[in-house]
Structures are given as structure tokens and as C-alpha cells.
């Protein structure tokens, strides 16, 4: 029932987003909005898939790539890039070049994390969480430090990267990202049953005949690609992944990835659309998507932490 309502809500949100206050201007306003819609869909899918898969691999419902430092590393990397090369060279590198470099970096970080998760096993969740939160703060401090050394123009570009926004995505970038994410999504869709087995934990997965190490490496690589795409497309989203994944679990009433993954995508896209609609029509641009998402998802995460009362 709830699930059906969620699915019906999505088209309604899409239509509202495209048409509300557009004056049905099919030449300018609506094409512009279509690009933004594209960015929202691609980023929403990235955040949903990466968060749910990461939680399956980590064996808990609180850790997400964003919390474990992926976004912090991405932003630090962008700052370093601008500092070394200057905005001119970064522009010459092109969005694609930058995206490829970022992806390589995310893959490297994924590889490190995966080695660590493999070795530590499903250790104390809260310890990992605290590590992730503090690491993100420290990385943020380093980023700020590097920003100090850049010129004012570069500074403002870097600063804008630190916020969730659907306005900076270019049509070409949305297209390329969309194709890439579609390819990843096909891989994920074909592996939902493997993910179900991975959710039982390392030992049970091996006992059921999975090459656990190889599966983990593959999934972590997919996560890296997804995070790189979403962060370069719409910016960091911090706690949104936790919110999206947990709402999806609650709606799904089943832990099977065939059910949870699509639902999570719908929740993420719906959340983005709703935030954008609120910013445009309720707050009249007197707040931003980034702030709304941070506020709602942060509060949700806090409530989740307090409610679990120390039992993961």
C-alpha cells in the first residue's frame, strides 16, 4: 500500500517539477528543467544504489559512502587540482577528464576501504562511523586550507562545489553520466541475488559458494563509480544516503535487493524533486536544496542513532 503510494507520488512530483510555474514554455524553461531532471534522476540513482550496496557490504544500516569519506576526498581533490593547475587548466582538462581522474581516485579509495573492511570484518559500526565523521571533518579542514591559497575566483568556484545543486550540470555531462550509470545499474540489477547472499555476511556467503573477496572488490568498484558521478554532477549529499536507504527498507518490508534497490532510487529522486520544489515554490529561493537535505537527513540520522539505543 505504502509502496504503491510511493510509486504513484513519483510521476506526480516529476510533472510538478517540470510544469509548475513554467508557463508551459517549451522552448526555454522546460528544456532547462529537463536537464535538471536528468541530473536529479542520475544522481538519485547513484546515491540510492551506492548507499544500499555499501550498507549490504558493511553489514549495517548507518554507514554510507558519503559518511565514510568519499565526498570529503572528492572535494579535497578538486581543491588540490585547482591549486596545482589553476581553473584555466582544469577547464582545459574538461569535465570528462576531471570526471575520469576523480573516478580513478574514488576507485583507489574504494580499494583501500575494501581492504580495510575485509580485514577488520564487520567490526564495531559506531567506531567506523565516528572515524568516518571525523575523517570527513578533517578532510573538510584540509580543503578549506587549500582554498585559502587559491585566488578569490577559484575560491568561489571551489566553495560552490561544496553544496548540493542541480544547476551546474551541463546537458552533455548529464548525458555521459546517465549512460555510465545506466551501464552500472544493469550490472547491479544482474547481481541482486549475489547482493542478497552478501548481506548474510562473509562466512555465510563463502559457505554458499561465493568468491567473497572478488564480489566485494567488484561491488566496491561500482560504488566508487557511482559516488564519483553523483558528486561531480550535483555535489556532496552527506547524510542523504542513510535517509534514502532506511526509508526504502521501511517501505520494502523485505531485505531482497530486487525490492530495496528500485525503491531506494525512487525515494532518492522523490526527495530531490521535493526539495527543489520546496525551494522554488515554498521558500522562493530563500533556502537551498543543500540546506534542506542536510537539515532533514541530518535530523533523521540523529533520530535513528538515538532510537537504536546502542544496538546496531
Amino acid at each position: 500500500m505504502m509502496r504503491r503510494a510511493a510509486w504513484l507520488l513519483l510521476p506526480a512530483l516529476v510533472l510538478a517539477f517540470l510544469l509548475l510555474g513554467s508557463g508551459l514554455d517549451f522552448n526555454y524553461v522546460i528544456p532547462k528543467r529537463l536537464v535538471r531532471l536528468g541530473a536529479i534522476v542520475v544522481a538519485g540513482v547513484c546515491i540510492a544504489l551506492s548507499s544500499v550496496i555499501f550498507q549490504t557490504l558493511a553489514g549495517n544500516r548507518v554507514l554510507t559512502p558519503a559518511i565514510m569519506g568519499y565526498e570529503g576526498i572528492y572535494l579535497l581533490f578538486q581543491a588540490v587540482l585547482v591549486l596545482w593547475l589553476g581553473t584555466g587548466s582544469v577547464a582545459r582538462l574538461g569535465a570528462q577528464g576531471n570526471a575520469l581522474l576523480s573516478m580513478a581516485l574514488m576507485l583507489g579509495y574504494s580499494w583501500l576501504l575494501q581492504r580495510w573492511l575485509l580485514r577488520e570484518g564487520r567490526g564495531d559500526v559506531y567506531r567506523l562511523l565516528l572515524l568516518g565523521l571525523v575523517l570527513t571533518m578533517v578532510l573538510g579542514t584540509f580543503t578549506q586550507f587549500i582554498q585559502l591559497k587559491t585566488s578569490p575566483g577559484e575560491f568561489s568556484i571551489l566553495q560552490s562545489l561544496g553544496y548540493t545543486s542541480f544547476n551546474r550540470a551541463q546537458p552533455a555531462q548529464v548525458l555521459y553520466s546517465g549512460l555510465l550509470v545506466a551501464a552500472v545499474a544493469v550490472l547491479v540489477a544482474r547481481g541482486t541475488r549475489v547482493l542478497d547472499v552478501l548481506a548474510l555476511g562473509r562466512d555465510q556467503a563463502i559457505a554458499l559458494g561465493l568468491d567473497h573477496g572478488r564480489c566485494l572488490r567488484l561491488q566496491m568498484a561500482l560504488i566508487a563509480v557511482l559516488v564519483a558521478v553523483s558528486t561531480s554532477l550535483v555535489g556532496p549529499t552527506a547524510f542523504m544516503g542513510v535517509f534514502v536507504a532506511n526509508i526504502a527498507y521501511a517501505l520494502a518490508r523485505s531485505a531482497r535487493h530486487q525490492v530495496t534497490l528500485p525503491l531506494a532510487c525512487a525515494v532518492a529522486i522523490g526527495m530531490f524533486l521535493l526539495a527543489q520544489l520546496l525551494v522554488e515554490h515554498l521558500f522562493n529561493y530563500r533556502t537551498s536544496v543543500s540546506i534542506l537535505v542536510n537539515l532533514v537527513c541530518g535530523a533523521y540520522f540523529l533520530a535513528l542513532m538515538v532510537r537504536t539505543r546502542g544496538t546496531p
Binding site: A199, L200, D203, Q204, I206, A207, L208, G209, L210, D211, Y249, A252, R253, S254, A255, T311, P312
Partner: peptide, 20 residues
């Protein structure tokens, strides 16, 4: 490893298991 799982089955202790 996939063949092994058809010849040997393992059950470890089931700890706090909260998958739905």
C-alpha cells in the same frame, strides 16, 4: 569455491541477525 559449496555446507553461529 562454487563447487565446494555443493559438496560442503557450513553453518556458523547466527548472531544478531536483523535482515527482513
Amino acid at each position: 569455491i562454487a563447487d565446494y559449496a555443493r559438496r560442503v555446507a557450513t553453518l556458523r553461529q547466527v548472531l544478531d541477525f536483523n535482515l527482513r
